[in-house]
Amino acid sequence: MSFIWSLVIFSGLVALVLLGVEGAKLEGLFGIWLPYAAVGIFVGGLIARVVNWGRSPVPFRIPTTCGQQKSLPFIRHARLDNPATGLGAAARVALEVLTFRSLFRNTKAQLTQDRRLVYGSEKYLWAGALAFHWAFLVILVRHYRFFAEPVPVVIGWIQGLDGFFEVGLPVIYATDVVILAALGYLLGRRLADARLRYFSMAADYFPLFLLLGVAGSGVLLRYVWKTDITRVKELAVGLASFRPVLPEGLGAMFYVHLFLVCALLAYFPFSKLTHMAGVFLSPTRNLANSNRARRHINPWNPPIVGHTYAEWEEEFRDKIKAAGIPLDRE
C-alpha cells in the first residue's frame, strides 16, 4: 500500500510538471522560482534541523563502541573504534561517512529448517548503499560544469575517468549505470523480502522513487530526449549569479529532471534523507571516549540547594531543646 501511494505521489509530481510546462506554459515558475524556493527550503531546513540538534546538551560521552578504550599501557587501545581524542573521533566519523563502517557490520537473522536462529554476514546492503552514494556524489560534482565558465579542469578529469570505457555516444558514464543499478537494488530489496516489505513505509519508497526519477530523467536527457545544453548552462549560471534568464526550447524532459531535483531538495529536511546532516551528529561516532580521563558535567543539572545540619538545627532549635537533645551551637 505504501509502495502504491509513493508511486502515485511521484507520478503526480511528474504529471504536474508536464502539465505545467506543456499545458500551462509555466516555464518561469518551474525554471526559476521553484529552484530558488527548493534550494531555500533545503538549506534553511537542514540548518534549522542541525541547530535544533545542536541545542541538545551533551551530558556525557556514550561509550557503546566495539573497541577497547584507552586504558593501561599494556592493554592495546582501539584507536579508531574507541578513540580518546577529538582527532580520533573525527577519523571515526570520516570513516563512517566515507565508507559506511556501521553498515558493513550489518547482519541477517534467519531461521534454519530445524527452527534454529542463525546470524550471518550481509554485505549486499552495504555494497548497494556505498555504490549509490558514491555514484550520486560523482554525478553531483560532474554537474558543476553547468555552473561555471570556464569549467574547472578537475571536472574535466572526473568526466574523463567516469567515461573511461568510451562506450556509446554521448559516452555512457559508469556512474549513470551504477546509480541506476544500485537504486534498482535498493528498491528491489524492499520489495523482494516479505519482512522488509512489512516495515517499509511510504517515507522509504518515496525518496527511492524521487532518486530513481532524478537519475532516470537525467539519463534520458543525456542519451535519448536531448536538449540544447548550452541553454541549460545559461539557465544554471543565471540562477547561480541571481540574474535569472529563461532560455527558450529547453524541452519537457529537462523540466521533469529539474522539477524532480527541486522536489528532492525541498523534501530533504523533512525526511529520512536528513541523515546527510545527522550522520555527523551521531553521538556514538563523534564523541571521543574520555569519560574516565576527564569530568563531564551535565549541563541540565539544576543548581543544588543544600540544607546543612547547622541550618536544620537553627530551624528546629526550640523543639530540639525542649526534647533535651544536645545542640552543636548552644
Binding site: Y144, F147, A148, T230, A236, A240, S241
Partner: peptide, 17 residues
C-alpha cells in the same frame, strides 16, 4: 552547497557563446 553561487560571485561566468 552554495559553491556555484560563491563561484559566480567571485568569477563572473562568461555568457553563452
Amino acid at each position: 552547497v552554495l559553491l556555484p553561487v560563491w563561484h559566480n560571485a567571485v568569477v563572473a561566468s562568461a555568457p553563452r557563446p
